[in-house]
């Protein structure tokens, strides 16, 4: 079941097309990565989902219904450009922002207390925002975004401004939110975190969606049947080509101490067992891996394919 459906959405700004018939399906209770280079149209799409701007064409369905103004209470949004009122006190401001999302004052207070303690910032409740470090402000913003327990959470570059320890804390919270039933849309340039967290992704480039699907399926699709073998051999002038099937291509051989690191690409009609059968009689295998492209590789490959110059 899809929590959010984006159907053929287009958005035009005077003479620039920001989104060109983009469609997405975000399954319920999953983490969805919205990827794309700068200026591709991700933020515009996110703003349309948040009803900050309206689409020129197409529609957005949340749980099967068209978006309506009261849906802001079902969505939590952490924008990339985020900040707080500098002169206001931390607690006061968090309370205000939560009440804007429709929480009652008592509920908000109770939940804020819980989260402030969890993130160890309760001592800052009565301090002014300008006294806080950037990372601490980000924590406050994160709390405010998720506090009203929305069905759909949208994080735009959530890890920017965090040190590795706090970034990890946030990452764990995001996984925790998913386990508690939330659906998360996650826009980032940090491909490592995409691989770690996302179930599905969509890649947007130049206002168009150029790739989407489950992360593991995309990776499967983009792998090239290439294997990396670490092995050792007693013979001194060992030549792998002599015994290797002629249809298997050796991409590289690196000598590393007394071991060899060999990369071999095999045609699609063969599999890893065929390769192993072929080389086991001749070498001692230390490790054997299939080379699977990272999301980073796929991203760069797809985008540069799309932008020929």
């Amino acid at each position: 079941m899809d929590l959010l459906k984006v159907v053929n959405v287009s958005k035009k700004y005077s003479n620039h097309l920001a989104l060109d018939k983009v469609s997405l399906n975000v399954p319920e209770n999953s983490i969805f990565g919205l990827l794309g280079p700068n200026g591709a149209g991700k933020t515009t799409l996110i703003r349309i989902i948040n009803q900050i701007t309206g689409p020129d064409e197409g529609e957005i369905l949340l749980s099967g219904n068209n978006l309506k103004p009261s849906d802001v209470e079902k969505i939590g949004y952490l924008p990339e450009e985020r900040g707080l009122y500098k002169k206001m006190k931390v607690g006061e401001q968090a309370l205000y922002l939560c009440q804007l999302k429709g929480l009652s004052k008592n509920d908000a207070l109770k939940k804020l207390k819980y989260w402030f303690e969890k993130f160890e910032i309760q001592a800052w409740w009565d301090r002014r925002v300008e006294e806080l470090s950037k990372g601490m402000q980000q924590k406050v913003q994160f709390i405010v975004t998720i506090l009203h327990e929305p069905k759909l959470l949208i994080f735009d570059e959530p890890f920017s401004g965090f040190d590795p320890i706090n970034a990890n804390l946030i990452k764990e919270e995001i996984i925790g939110l998913k386990n508690n039933g939330s659906t998360i849309i996650f826009s980032t340039h940090n491909m490592a975190s995409v691989e770690e967290l996302c179930d599905n992704i969509a890649l947007i480039n130049k206002s168009k969606k150029i790739l989407d699907g489950k992360v593991y399926e995309i990776k499967k699709e983009y792998k090239s049947n290439t294997f990396s073998i670490d092995c050792s051999n007693s013979e001194n002038n060992f030549n792998i080509q002599e015994f290797l099937d002629k249809r298997f291509a050796v991409l590289s051989i690196d000598v590393k101490n007394d071991a060899l690191k060999i990369k071999i690409k095999i045609p699609t009609e063969f599999n890893s067992n065929d390769l192993l059968k072929n080389i086991i009689p001749h070498v001692n295998i230390i490790s054997f891996n299939e080379i699977i492209p990272t999301m980073n590789d796929i991203f760069i490959q797809r985008v540069s394919q799309d932008n020929p110059n």
């Binding site: 103004p69 802001v72 969505i75 009122y85 922002l97 804007l100 999302k101």
Partner: peptide
């Protein structure tokens, strides 16, 4: 201007209309 330079504006207008 303050809301704009503080970058709080987008946080707020995801809750209320501009």
């Amino acid at each position: 201007i303050e809301e704009k330079t503080n970058r709080i504006i987008e946080v707020i207008i995801s809750s209320v209309k501009p």
